[in-house]
Simulated scan of single mutants.
Amino acid sequence: MRKETILITGAGTGFGKNIAFRLAEMGYDVIAGVEVMSQVSALEQEVREKDLEIRLEQLDVTNPKDREKAWGWDIDILVNNAGIK
């Protein structure tokens, strides 16, 4: 049986980050969309420290090229958590 893949936008901090980690701990395939590239490096380290499997992707939902890239990902569930400051 295939695990569901979940894309979480706005996963660099706060609720998005927490839900990404929790879902990965529960065994889901998680793609964490992170707007700021510097957050990707910090999250990569935390993912390694917690021995989790989370796919980290730079994803700015306001950028048409990033949205087009994300449309190609095979996801089952989308958690739209990104916000605009």
Rank of each mutant, 00 (worst) to 15 (best):
A32M: 12
F21Y: 05
T9F: 13
Q39K: 14
V30Y: 03
K17F: 02
S38M: 05
G14I: 02
G12P: 09
V40F: 12
A42P: 10
G16A: 09
T13M: 06
G10S: 12
L23C: 00
V34Y: 04
E25T: 08
G10K: 10
K17A: 02
G10C: 12
A32I: 03
V30I: 07
G33F: 05
E35I: 14
K17P: 00
G16P: 05
G33Y: 02
F15E: 06
D29A: 04
D29N: 07
T13V: 06
A24R: 07
F21N: 01
R22E: 09
V36H: 12
A32K: 08
G12H: 11
G27C: 13
A42S: 12
V36L: 10
G12E: 13
I31Q: 04
I19H: 01
A11W: 01
E35M: 14
G27P: 09
L43V: 05
G16R: 00
A24Q: 06
L23E: 06
G33H: 03
A20V: 00
S41N: 06
T9K: 11
A32R: 06
R22Q: 15
Q39S: 10
V34A: 01
L43H: 08
A42G: 08
I19V: 05
V40N: 10
Q39N: 08
E35A: 13
S41L: 07
T13Q: 09
I31H: 13
A42V: 07
M26Y: 11
G33I: 01
F15M: 15
I19L: 09
R22C: 09
R22V: 13
V40L: 11
A32S: 09
L43K: 03
G33W: 02
K17M: 01
M37G: 14
G16V: 05
T13W: 08
A11Y: 01
L23S: 04
A20S: 09
A42R: 15
Q39I: 06
S41K: 15
V40G: 12
N18T: 14
I31V: 12
V34K: 02
I19G: 09
A11Q: 03
T13K: 14
L43S: 08
V36K: 15
N18M: 15
A42N: 15
A20W: 03
A11C: 02
R22I: 05
G10F: 07
V40A: 07
F15W: 04
I31R: 02
A24E: 02
K17R: 13
S38A: 07
G12R: 06
G33M: 03
A20R: 10
G33E: 02
G12Y: 05
V30F: 02
A24M: 08
V36S: 11
E25S: 11
N18R: 15
G16F: 09
G12V: 07
I31D: 01
Y28D: 01
V40M: 09
Y28N: 01
G10W: 08
L43Q: 01
D29W: 07
G10M: 06
R22P: 11
N18C: 14
S38E: 12
V30L: 03
D29K: 11
I19M: 09
A42I: 11
V30K: 00
T13Y: 13
R22T: 03
Q39Y: 10
K17L: 03
G27L: 03
E25W: 14
E35H: 15
T13I: 06
T9V: 11
A32F: 09
E35Y: 10
G27M: 07
N18P: 12
